[in-house]
Simulated scan of single mutants.
Amino acid sequence: MANQIATFFSTQPHAEAVDGTRQHIRKFWDPRMRGRVPHLLAEHPSLLPIAREALEGLPASSHN
């Protein structure tokens, strides 16, 4: 799902796309989904660069 969100924002300049993806995840993913962020980063090399940067930039407190 992170890749789909990143694809939606990918028409924007890179920094804006990362921020838009990050904001969407922060607002709309429930805590269980955000709690899986460390797993996604470690186990899914197929994440698009925008999605990976957005997830890496989430504060640890927002993972819960």
Rank of each mutant, 00 (worst) to 15 (best):
R52M: 12
L47K: 12
P59H: 07
V37M: 04
G57N: 06
E16N: 08
H44F: 13
S46H: 14
S10K: 09
F8Q: 06
Q12H: 15
R34E: 02
A2L: 08
R52Q: 11
I50D: 06
I25Q: 00
F8P: 00
S10W: 10
F28A: 05
F28E: 11
M1L: 12
L58N: 00
A17Q: 04
P45M: 08
A2T: 08
H14C: 03
L41C: 02
A60E: 14
A51G: 04
A54E: 03
S61G: 07
I5M: 02
Q23Y: 03
R26S: 10
A17E: 03
L41M: 06
Q23D: 06
S10Y: 00
Q23I: 05
Q12P: 05
P38D: 04
T7S: 05
P45V: 01
A2I: 01
D30M: 13
M33D: 11
F9N: 03
F9I: 00
T21S: 09
P13Y: 13
D30N: 09
F9L: 06
P45Y: 10
R26Y: 08
H39L: 08
N64P: 10
L40D: 07
V37G: 00
E53C: 04
H44D: 11
H44W: 14
A17W: 08
I50T: 04
N64W: 13
K27D: 14
L47N: 10
W29P: 03
A15V: 15
A42L: 03
R34W: 01
F9W: 09
P13I: 01
E56A: 07
A15L: 11
I5H: 02
N3K: 08
A15T: 15
N3C: 13
S46V: 03
T11W: 02
P31T: 08
H39R: 13
N64K: 07
G35S: 07
S61I: 02
